[in-house]
Structures are given as C-alpha cells and as structure tokens.
C-alpha cells in the first residue's frame, strides 16, 4: 500500500526544492540590482564545508548545513564589500571569476577535497532521519511504508519546510523597509542614496543573503546526494541557476520558483529535451532577452491573474 509514495518522484521533488533555493539565491541580489554569477561557487563552498564538517569531525548534519550556509554567507560579505563598488557588468564578471577560482581550488586542494574525484560517503539526511526516528522506537512499517519510501519522503518534507521558510523570509523582507531599500537601489542607486539609504550596506546585505542561500542549497545538495565533485559547481551550474530566475521572471519571487520547477521538470517529463537541454536554454535566453527581458512572470501578469487592482508594487 501507499505505492504512490514513489521514491523517484520524491527525488525529483527534492531536486526541484533545492533548485528553488538556488533560484532565490540569484533573485535576492538581483532585487537590489546585483547580478551574481557566483552562485555555483557559493553553492560549492556550502556543499564542501558541510560535507567536510560531517565527514571529518562527525558533526551532526544540521550543524554541517548551518555551517556550510554561514561560511558561504561570510565569504559573500568578504567578497561583497569591496566588489560592490563595481556596478552591473563588472560585478557579474568578478563573481564569475570568483566561482572559477573556487572550483579550481576544489580540484587542486587534493589533501582536503580529493581533487576532481570529489567527496563520497557524505552522511545522508534521509538515513540520519530514519535512525533518529528508530531511536524513538518508530519503524516506517508501522505506517505502512518501506524504508526507502520513508527516507525519500522525509527528505522531501524537510526540504519543503526549509524552502517554505526561505520564501516566507524573503517575501516578508520584501514588503518592508529593507525590501523597499533593495528595490529603490535597483531602480535608481543615486536617488536611493540621496534618500538616506546606505547603499553599500544594503547591497552587501542582499549579496550576502544570496551567498548564504546558495551555500544552504549546496550543503543540502551534498547531504541529499551523498557525493559531490567540483564539476557539480562549474560555470554551467551558475548559468543554469541564472536561467531559472531569468526565465521564470526576475522581478518577482514567484518567477524564480516557477522557473526552477518548470525547468527541472521539463527534462524529466520530456526525455528527448534532456539531451538538448542546454541548446534549448541558449536559444531561450536569447529570445527572452529580446521579447520578454523580465521573464515569463512579471508584476503585470500576476496582478491580472489575480484580478486585483491594488498597487502593482505590492507583490514585489
């Protein structure tokens, strides 16, 4: 019974959730006008930090995940403070360079990172959770689930909670003094500054939040997969994450969520798409920029869908 709890579907669901986190990690800096191509790098920092903490020091996964996200966030601050003097294109290139440096370090720091082979035997969240509930005398079979069904279900639910909390955080922040500062910087940096907004502070804040979220997604990725290698965090990953956000709609958070869901599902549903995925991505980016640079979902579309006449700034 309960066959509908299919590990394969749950696995895809988990990937979608991780990709939503990654898309949001691009969206947040973008909401203050910062395009970061370093998300794959920050993701890698989170993944490696958490994996190494749990493998080498036997720390609980939760400590590893929080540690991974924090290290990525702190790196975001360190990189952010000086490089946010740079605008637009320069920042994009600097973060792209950063991402590559991080990857090269993963490949070459053999003694710690095991080089291009990567790390294996990373403790997996699902098993840990299973052990935990067993400690309380609970067996999946008691609710009619097989062990692996239970494991995948728990991972999915845990990720779901984390993603929901993240979205809740970002939306609440958006509709506040902090969010208004982000969007005013995005729209006109100089005017924002002359309204008393400390633009350096808010830019670093949004950039570091993005780094933190990417690091969080990375460390969760490591503990879901159980193995990681530098190629998981290459430039292609950064581009893929960027596409989630840009395709779905970079002005609204729901755009990032939609982009991550849609673009993760499509290659799974349409197998033939999978092979040509990047070719399609490439064409899509070009067409999008020319036809609909704000992405599929935007404020106008959303307010029409909801049939609301209220302030279009309200949903940002």
């Amino acid at each position: 019974m309960l066959d509908f709890i299919n590990p394969y579907y749950l696995q895809i669901g988990s990937f979608i959730l991780i990709n939503i986190l990654l898309a949001v990690s691009v969206y947040v800096p973008l909401s203050s006008g910062q395009l970061s191509l370093g998300s794959a790098g920050f993701m890698g920092v989170g993944a490696y930090t958490s994996a190494l903490l749990t493998i080498n020091f036997d720390l609980p996964i939760m400590v590893g995940v929080v540690g991974g996200a924090c290290v990525a966030g702190i790196l975001g601050i360190i990189i952010g403070i000086p490089s946010l003097r740079l605008t637009g294109v320069y920042l994009a290139i600097a973060t792209l360079g950063l991402g590559e440096v991080i990857r090269v370090i993963f490949v070459n720091w053999d003694s710690v990172t095991k080089g291009s082979i990567g790390l294996t035997g990373i403790p997996q969240i699902g098993r840990e959770l299973l052990n935990l509930v067993r400690g309380f005398g609970f067996e999946p079979s008691m609710i009619g689930l097989k062990n692996n069904q239970f494991v995948f279900l728990m991972v999915f639910l845990l990720l779901f909670i984390i993603v929901m909390a993240t979205i809740w955080f970002v939306v609440r922040q958006q509709n506040s003094r902090v969010g208004r500062s982000f969007s005013s910087i995005q729209m006109d940096e100089k005017a924002a500054e002359s309204m008393g907004i400390n633009i350096t502070y808010f830019k670093v804040l949004s950039f570091a939040q993005g780094a933190f979220l990417a690091g969080l997604a990375g460390s969760l990725f490591a503990h879901v997969m159980g193995y990681i290698s530098p190629s998981d965090f290459s430039y292609h990953r950064a581009v893929e994450i960027l596409i989630f956000t840009v395709f779905g709609g970079s002005e609204v958070i729901i755009g990032s969520i939609f982009g991550a869901i849609f673009l993760t599902l499509i290659p799974e549903v349409l197998r033939f798409v999978s092979e040509y995925r990047y070719i399609i991505y490439g064409i899509m980016l070009v067409i999008l920029m020319a036809v609909r640079p704000q992405g599929i979902l935007d404020i106008h579309l959303l307010s029409r869908v909801k049939g609301l006449k209220r302030s279009k700034g309200g949903m940002r």
Binding site: A92, V239, L242, I279, G282, I283, M284, M289
Partner: peptide, 15 residues
C-alpha cells in the same frame, strides 16, 4: 536592463 545583453550573449555561448 543593462544586464540583458550580457545574459543574451551567455545564451549564445551555451548554444
């Protein structure tokens, strides 16, 4: 946005 050409040429590059 001034980022549009950057993203568009990234598209061409991966294509």
């Amino acid at each position: 946005s001034h980022l549009a050409p950057l993203i568009s040429t990234i598209g061409v590059s991966i294509l």
